[in-house]
Structure formats: C-alpha cells, structure tokens
Design a protein around this nucleic acid. Structure first.
Lengths: 646, 646
DNA sequence: TACTTTGCCACCTAAGTGTGAAGC
DNA sequence: ATGCTTCACACTTAGGTGGCAAAG
C-alpha cells in the first residue's frame, strides 16, 4: 500500500479493486484508442461491415470486424487501398483454457535478469489472411494500468503508482515476413520472447517492472518487408485472459502450482511422491495433463519445430482488434477528457471493447462493434464473465482455500480509473511504449536516431512520439478484417514465403539472447511511421507539445523506483543499456482518453472512484512512460546488432 | 568399385586416385564457371583490380579479387552499377585447422533420416561488406563429382557413377537479410543446416546421397529482400577443405575419433578411462581441446547465441569466389571440351583456383588472380600443400597406422577427370542443383511453379534452369569484391538490420526441423533469376535445349539407386516430398567444362587419365542431376510452409 | 520487520552424438 | 556373406523451472 491514493484498498469487489481489472484495463485503453482510429481507416473492397448499432459514448461495444471500420473510415479519409482487401484476419488464442485457469487465479510471470519465457506460452492461430500476401506478425507487452501492486494476504492490491515504464520492445516474430498461407498453416508462437527486469538488457528482451500488470498484444501487419513496417497498418489483437503481473518470485502459490503442473520444464517439482512439494498442496487440476500432452502431440505434427508446449485444444479466444492504418487519425487530443470511465469489469469478458464516448467520432462505430460482437459467436469464444470464473474456481478442489483476491481482482479498477483521466493520446502513449521495440531493426539501435530514411518523413520528435501509436487507435474486434494497409509499396510482386526455415536453424532454441539476431525495433521507429501517417491525415493532431522531463528529474508524485539491482549503471556490465537519465526532453504529452465498456459493464462498475488518479502525477507518469519508451529505447539497444552467429 | 570405368583403382597417388581430389573437383567446376562470368560482371567504382598476369588456358590461376573482375567486366557489358561498389567482401573459413585435420583424413558427414548437422560446423567470417547495405547470406552443398564411393581396405575408392542427384536446397542464413555491419560483427554459422538422406524430407534439410562426395559453398548476395534474391548477384565462396563424403555410418575410424574428440556432443564417447572406445585407439590430437575451448569462449563473447562450437583461432581459409551477377555470361557451352583436366592436387591447396583454359575469355583474369593470390597473404591463410598435410598426419601419434587411403585420397581424380568432360554449362548444372533450394521461399514450393511474378521475367523452363546457375559462372577468388549486384530495386531507403533477433527466439535451437520456418528456396527460383539476367546480357546463351529425361526414365548407364529405405513412396509418411518419377523433362543439358589448377599442380597431375568418364552416361547423369534439382525441388518442398511455430 | 530480488541448485526438456546390434 | 542403413541407447550440451537461502 505504498500508493497514497489507493492505500487501504483490500480486495475483490472493493470499489478500488474490482474483480478482473485486467480486462478492463485493456479494453479501456483500446477503447480510448479506437475513436481516433476510425477516421483514418481505409475500406477494403470486400468489407462486409455492418451498420453501427450501439452507441459508443459510454463505451459498450462489441468487437467489430475491421472491414467495417475500414469502410467507414474510407469515407473519412481516402487511404491507399492498393493492397487493402483480400484478407480478413481472425485470431484466436491457443491454450485458452490454460490461460483461463491462470487468469482466474491471477496470472504471474516471473521476470529475471537472464530473461524468462512466458508460461503459458503466447500462441495464436491466425485465419483469414491473404494466402499470397506477406505479413509481419509481432507482439509486445504493454502496461495494463499505471499501478504498482503488492501481494498481501493472499491477494493482489494496489501499492502505489506505477514505476517508470521501461523501454518496451516490439517483438517481431522471427518468421516475418511470411505469407498468409504460412502463418495460417499452424499456430504462431512467441515463446522466444523473454521477459526481464534488467533495464540494461542487451538481448532485446522485453523489460518489465516487477509487481506491475501487463497485457500482451498481438499485431498483424501486411507488409513484405520489415522496412515497411513503420508505414504499415497494424492490426492489434488483445486477449484479456493473458494479462499478468510481472514478479521476480511467485507470490500466489496457486500460480506456482499451476505452472509446475503444466510447464514441462517444471516437471521436477511435481508432487510425484518424491517428497518434494511442500508449500503448495497439489492443486493439480484435471485439465492438467492435457496441456503437456497436447504440446507433445503438436510437436509431432508436421515438421515440428518450435518448442514450448501449448495446448491446441480447448477454446480459443478471439481477441479485440485494434488497427492503425498509416495516416491514421487521432482521437480527441486535449486533456483528460474522459468521464464515464467506469465500467463493469464483468462485461469486459464478453469480449467487447468499448470506445471512448469522448473520442472524436467513434461513437457510431462502437455500436457497430457491439452488434458485431453479438452476432459473431466466434468473438465470444473463450469469453467468460467473472461470475463464471468464480463459479469455476470454487468448483476446483484445492486443498488450499481460494485466495481471497486470487481470482477476480480489481486493480483493474485502478487502472481503469486511471485511464479515464488520460486523453486518447495519452492512452496511446500508454500503450505504445509497449507497442514497439523488442526485436526489430537492430541497426536502428546501432546508430540512426529514428531513421525513416531522410526526406521520407519529417516531423518533430514530439509529434512523432505522440502520433506514433496510431496503430493502437484502431477498431476493436475479435474477428477478421480486410486488408487496409498503406504499405509504402510492394517490393517484389509475389508472395514469397520468408520462413528462413527455422525448422533447421532457427526454431529450436528459445531465447539465445543474442542481440545480434534480434530484430530490434525501438519505439521511435514505429512512432515516426505512424506519426507521419497520422500527421498527414489528421488536422487537429494530438499533443505535439514537448515535455521536458525524465523519470528522474521531473517526477511530481510518482516515485521513481529502481531496485538496487536495477539502478542504472549498477546493473550488468556495459552501460550502453537504457539510461533513464538520458531521456531527452522532446516528448509530447499524452492526452487523456476514455474507456469503453459495454453498458452493462459500466453499470456494475459505476461505484468506482474516478477521481483518484486524476492528478498531475498520473499524467506525468504517462509522459514519462512515453518518454522512456521513446528515448530509452534507443539507448537500450543492444550494442551488437550483428546476425551471423545464429 | 561398381563403376565399370574406375573399377580397379585403389588408392593414393594412383592415376585414378590422386590425393585430395576434393580440392580439385571444386576448383575444377569453379574454374569452368569463371570464364562465363567475367563478361557480365559490372565494375564497381572502388574496384582496385590488378592487371592480369597469368594466363588461364591450362587453368592455373590465383584467386582474384572480385573488383578486378568487375572492372574488366564493366568494359564487357554495361551492368547496373547502382549499388555496385562499396563492398569488397572477404570470406574466411573458421576453424580451418579443424577442417584441415578432417580433410587430411577424408572428411565424412553422417546423414540421417532425421537430419544431422555438419561437424565441423560450417562457419565463416565475413569482411569488407558495405556496413549499411543489406545482404543475404546462404550456403548450399553441391556434388563434388559424379561418382559413388565405397570405403574399402581403409580407403575410399570409386564405386561407380553417382546416383541420381537429390533435389538440392539453398539454405538461407536465418538472419538474412541483415546489414553488412551485422554480418561482419561475428562469424556467420550455418549449423542449423542439416543433412539427410531422406528423399522425402519435409524439413527443408539438404538431401544428399550416401557415399557421395560433396562440397559446401557459401554465397553472399547483396539484396535487402529475399524476393530480390533471384535477380541478384551471387558471390560464391568455396573452401576446398570442407569437401566431405556423406555416409550413413562412419567408414573411417580416424574420422570417428576426430569427431568424438572435437564434437562436444560426442564427449560421452571420449576415451576417458571409462572403458569405452575400443575400435578407435585414442587418436586424440594435441589440437583437440582447442576447438571446444574456443567454442565456449566464443559463446561467452558478446551476446552469445548460436550453439555449435567453432574454433575462432587458427588459420582461416580464404575461399575461391565465384560470382554471378545477374545478366551474367555463360562460358563455352558445347560439349566435353576439356583437355588438360589433370592437375596436381597438391597445388590446389595453395589456395588458388584455376580457370579453364577452354573457357571463353578468362585467361587473362586467371593470371590476375594468381598474382593477387601471391600478393595477398590473406589468401594463403590456412592454405597448405598436400605435402604439408602428409607431414602433419605422419606426425600424429595414432596407435592405428595411418589408413593407407585415409588421408590424401584421389577419388577426386575421378571427379576431376569427370568434370573435364563436361561443358561449362554442364558443370554449372552440376553445381547448381546444389546451389539453391534448401530453406527458402517455401511458398514457392507450395504452389507457384517458378514464380517470379509474372511479366517480370519470361523464359522457357529449360532455358531458365540452364542459365540459372549463372552465379556459378563467376570469377574465382579468395578475397573480396565490390558490390555489383543488379538488384531489382531497393525497397526502402536505409539499411535496416533484419536480425529478427534470433537472440531471443531464433538462435538457440539448432534445427528444430520445422519446415514451416525454413526459408525454402527451390532451385527453380534462382535459376530463373540468373537465367533472365544472363539471357538479357549475353548473346550466345548456353544450352537452352530442353532435355526430356528423368533420372528414372532416361538413364543410360547410370544406375538409379534408392535404398529400400529411401524408395520414393516407401519413405516416411506424406508422399508430398520429392518424387523422382515426377521429374519433368524440360531441362537443359549442361555442357562440359575445364578445371583449373596452378601450373605446378597440373604438372603433378598430368599422368592422370582424362578420357575415363567421357561417355554419354556422364552427361546424362549431369542432366539428370540438374533436372532433379529443378523439378524435384518443388515437389520435395515441405507440405507445411507455414512459419508461426517457431 | 516486511517485502523483493538475487544466485545457485537440482531437476527436467530438447536435441546433438556415436554405438552396436539388427535389418535389408 | 557383404555392404550399407536403421534404430534404440546412453551420454552430452543447452537451456527452461521453481526452490530456497541470502542479500538488500
């Protein structure tokens, strides 16, 4: 309870701790982004959008199909439709049941200096892509809220405001670019992505703050060259059940047990009568074996490759889609707009993302989405309400009582509330920091500040960073959408699969932590691209104001925390890593945004406090996050950007 | 001794079995290719070629620097010089000493159904690249000759003509494309490439015939997109000391022992007093430990990644460079030209590649090369004469007497001789089959016959396949050369590193055999590209004649061998793999070529027979090889070409 | 003291190696 | 009987897991 604002809050259903906050958080910022998205979306020919049905002011909205948005957007702004159409991607989360099991308890992911994989592994199945077109698939992990947590009395509770955001990195799937056919052939796994708390990480791992909540995101970009990524449309998918709290050591024994029971690498800790396992009673759940078995089965299929297991069976979750075409629009820029930011977490699970009612134009679209959601059963796959979760968890026969705050927490509430104080722009910033960076053009790190090949694009750093998150400002849907990317121009004609045959060379190993290999993509890069697009398309661009503050110099109330182990310069060797002190002052200040939830959801959440986080501290922190995301990114770039080794 | 022609030949220094034949073989076909290369080469601005010194009729020539050739070529034919220049690649083989140790004995590589790595690992150090330009690095393994061997009485001897060539695959380094800076940062390893004897392989592994000799090759292509590979210039580097015989089980105990002593994974078989090792006395050589130690040291350096060890120290071998600019030329096409194909194997080691005296125009260049070689000490690095080898081997304290034919064999002789009977075109075909295919655009395999995006390029399949090997028809040198690639046009402006951060995801694992990941690149693809270029540039194009024969239908004397385990259809599952019966009949017939050796070398080798292989059977087989390389490639493509898995 | 983070450890998966008997 | 290929094995490297004591 470090946080002065939330101190005292305890557990489930507390105004400040609504159950299943994670979902909210995500949907919240997604919703916020949405508004700004529509205006710029292009409409693919094959778009089969439906007329908007539900209004989006308060937020409620079902995940819409992209094409729908595209259509509308088309009218708004003329976008390049060249290669639009022909695809209508649909993404489902693999091992959904397993994720759900963790989610109910409150997923925790260990982060270590050397980098730790995620478990369950983030794996998605993609459908509806243009077989011949080439795509780049990526994922990143963004803050779910701006709070710091603590696990107290068997439950998670807010413990203050979030620490300064670490430079986020966009992780490009190593097979990128590859044809839609290839991507759809089998689930796309991201087990090579590693999490770390080492701010000086040189491997390109995703740096997270311990005791903070995060949301993994998946992106699909139609582009045949990584160089085009910056100018391309990002279709973002978020699976609420994948939110997790980063920890350096497991806090909830239930999580530990679930990990042990399902992660083959932890088999050694299973209670097999070998006199191990003391603390945790064997909470082994029936679904247990399934995961591993599936993994093995999967490995044997086709030309196995990969590694981390991942259950194939079970429900797959249709995510919320956020799309950011280049030249995308930005939602209302201005300050903490918001308002009815409170929503019912429960509803969130219904799989719908809400749009900020305060956003520029999205309202009607929100309705559209909602309708879509209700119509498209696939969108609801894997979606479950908190109540259901509760019921399930209670049914579980665990020797240990269900930890009070175990499942269905509500820090989300906090986050949610917090978000409501940010403008759409701010939310973007909030999300974007985690939007790009991890493995990407390492050469960028190697020198060029922002590259974008001179002349092609000119903007002030501030403007760029602010607008860069355009692809976050997209429509939210769980189904597929038509191609609407505004690629800078196809290179070669066809759709050549790029695979690089990980089969033989790349696959197996997880994170060999060779920065040389990683495709590092510092935020700045994408930022610029998106920003450029946005700038050229939208009139009232969002905050272009540059704020001169770094997490270390201009903190109002937010505490800058660095564990003794992470203090800049005190960490591992080469100080070429991220150095907070070097954050420049040329960054835009994000603006507040609204969250959107289904009306039902908001009804439930109405009792929450809305003002708590509405202080300058919140804004400052957001800004700082953004700044670090932009500036820190560059500095943290691995010194070695060479490939070869492999 | 199945081969009627060579039956009876026994061992070292026998006319038919000159020691260290491998070197010859390689240099032979390289030389043959050279002639045709020059005419088409573009001259980079920074070219610093030297005037030709030695004549090339009989062959002898030192490894020239590309730029030299480029310069000359410039005059011959105007090539796109857009991105020419700025780079002058120099490639050296890592772990040369180790390779030499194996080479002396007669390197053997085990091939298994599940795929086996090479040991020593093929690893090269690249220098002189344009830091900012992007390159694609690849490797493939081509037949060293067209003979089948048998290990009899402790020595290798010819046992007939080669079996039908398996579809070869070009293995694209997974980090491709990446900037020159990245590639040069650390040695480029290809340990993910796996060898197999499973003709139905779906992993994209390199399929080889057991008991046949092969030569690994390394290629550098300046291109920022894999899609441009087909239209780009290939700079090929060959390290004679890396020739090897594919086996399903080690034949020479010395090789086995050397492997055990140096491969960390075989450590369990080392004679550490654990009562193992019987057959092989501990031939452990002093240099032993070094390799492994180096590997470990290397792993710790920088952001380790990779895996297979590889000694960094010791001599690195400058290879013979073969370059094929697009719109390349073809050497004399006609039939078994040849003539003084006999050379002294010993000389080969001197590190110089000889050009075929019968080749079109190369003569003067050959001299130039020679001079270069003598001047550039780096070219001689690791180069050693057979005599030296002999001395070394004798110094080794092996309990077991040096197997008579163990080191310094001469099947090479056969191969050499054989090669002399082929026209340049034939040699090209001979090599090309192994030039492209392994991991590459899998989508190609997935459907499109040859793709090349309609309209961009039009040629008859036959012509294409014939000319496709253009990049083989290049100059031979050990040093660097300037950029001369005729890329189809740069996509984005800058030089973005492509890394994909294998660090995190790709690196570690070796060959997870996931076809989905491999970048499959069937020969046909490259063939077409090169062909197109050649066609547009050269007047008297080589064989465009389409031959209607498949290894199964039109075999004159060559026996079609398929072990019971490999019979098409009888092998592993899915028959989507390579099906010899499906080989089409539209392929060009390769033409003979000359080999080139230093004059000294030829003096020594003059006593060899030249006519032995000059029969139609040889030609047919070559053709068949080519055909299978082209047609088989497609069929053998892994059914699953999806990425994702990773 | 309370809470986190670190390091090292044992254990496990994944996969690379040659063996040696069996198969064809 | 010869010659080559296959396969189950034991052993090794590389690396993923949580435990746990110690440190901060």
């Amino acid at each position: 309870m470090r946080d002065p604002v939330f101190s005292g809050s305890t557990m489930a259903y507390h105004p400040f701790q609504a159950p299943r906050p994670l979902d909210f958080s995500i949907s919240a910022f997604l919703a916020a982004a949405q508004p700004s998205f529509f205006p710029a979306l292009a409409l693919p020919p094959s778009a089969l959008g439906k007329p908007p049905v539900e209004s989006g002011l308060s937020g409620a909205l079902g995940p819409p199909h992209h094409h729908i948005h595209a259509t509308h957007l088309h009218g708004f702004k003329s976008m390049e439709l060249e290669d639009a159409a022909k695809d209508n991607p649909k993404v489902t989360l693999e091992a959904k049941e397993l994720w759900d099991q963790f989610h109910k308890i409150g997923t925790e992911m260990v982060i270590t200096k050397s980098g730790r994989r995620m478990f369950p592994p983030f794996k998605v199945r993609v459908e509806g892509l243009d077989k011949k077109a080439r795509y780049i698939l990526l994922m990143d992990i963004v803050s779910a809220d701006d709070c710091r947590y603590k696990f107290h009395n068997s439950s998670w509770m807010v413990a203050g405001k979030a620490d300064p955001e670490m430079p986020k990195r966009m992780y490009i799937h190593p097979d990128s670019p590859a044809t839609g056919e290839q991507w759809m052939a089998k689930p796309v796994t991201f087990h090579k992505l590693k999490l770390t708390n080492n701010i000086s990480d040189k491997h390109g791992f995703t740096i997270l703050n311990s005791m903070h909540k995060y949301q993994p995101r998946f992106h699909i970009v139609r582009a045949n060259d990584l160089l085009k990524l910056p100018y391309s449309t990002f279709r973002t998918y978020v699976f609420p059940e994948t939110v997790f709290t980063a920890v350096t050591a497991y806090q909830n024994d239930k999580i530990t047990q679930l990990k042990i029971d399902n992660n083959p690498f932890a088999k050694g800790f299973r209670d097999t009568g070998n006199g191990r396992r003391e603390k945790r009673k064997q909470l082994t759940i029936p679904t247990l074996r399934r995961f591993e078995d599936q993994c093995k089965a999967e490995r044997d299929v086709g030309d196995s490759d990969t590694s981390s297991c991942d259950p194939v069976a079970g429900g797959e979750t249709p995510p919320r889609v956020v799309r950011s075409p280049r030249g995308v629009s930005r939602a209302c820029r201005g300050g903490k707009i918001n308002a009815d930011s409170d929503q019912e977490p429960e509803q969130l699970d219904v799989g719908s993302a809400t749009t900020d009612s305060h956003a520029p134009s999205p309202t009607r679209f929100a309705q559209d989405r909602k309708e879509q959601l209700e119509k498209d059963s696939s969108l609801l796959v894997g979606v479950r309400s908190p109540k259901k979760d509760k019921a399930e968890s209670q049914n579980r026969k665990e020797s240990e009582a269900e930890s009070p705050g175990g499942s269905d927490k509500e820090d989300a509430e906090v986050r949610h509330t917090d978000l409501s104080h940010f403008s759409t722009t701010q939310l973007q910033a909030l999300a974007l920091p985690g939007v790009h960076g991890q493995p990407f053009y390492s050469n960028l790190a190697a020198g060029q500040p922002l590259l974008l090949h001179q002349g092609q694009f000119t903007m002030t750093p501030g403007a760029l960073s602010t607008m860069g998150m355009e692809h976050l400002l997209s429509s939210v849907s769980t189904a597929a959408s038509l191609e609407n990317s505004a690629l800078v121009g196809q290179t070669a004609g066809g759709s050549c699969s790029f695979p690089l045959h990980l089969s033989q060379h790349i696959l197996t190993s997880q994170g060999i932590q060779m920065p040389a290999f990683g495709a590092m993509f510092p935020y700045p890069y994408t930022y610029m691209a998106a920003a450029a697009a946005a700038a050229s398309v939208l009139p009232g661009s969002a905050a272009t104001a540059s704020v001169s503050l770094s997490p270390f110099l201009s903190t109002t109330r937010s505490r800058l925390r660095f564990s003794p182990y992470q203090l800049p310069g005190s960490t591992t060797g080469l100080n070429s890593g991220w150095d907070p002190c070097r954050l420049s002052s040329r960054d835009p200040s994000p603006t507040p945004a609204l969250e959107q939830q289904s009306q039902a959801a908001r009804l439930v959440a109405n009792h929450r406090t809305k003002a708590t986080l509405r202080d300058s501290a919140s804004e400052l922190q957001s800004i700082q996050r953004l700044v670090s995301g932009l500036e820190g990114q560059r500095d943290s770039f691995p010194a070695r950007t060479s490939p070869g080794g492999e």
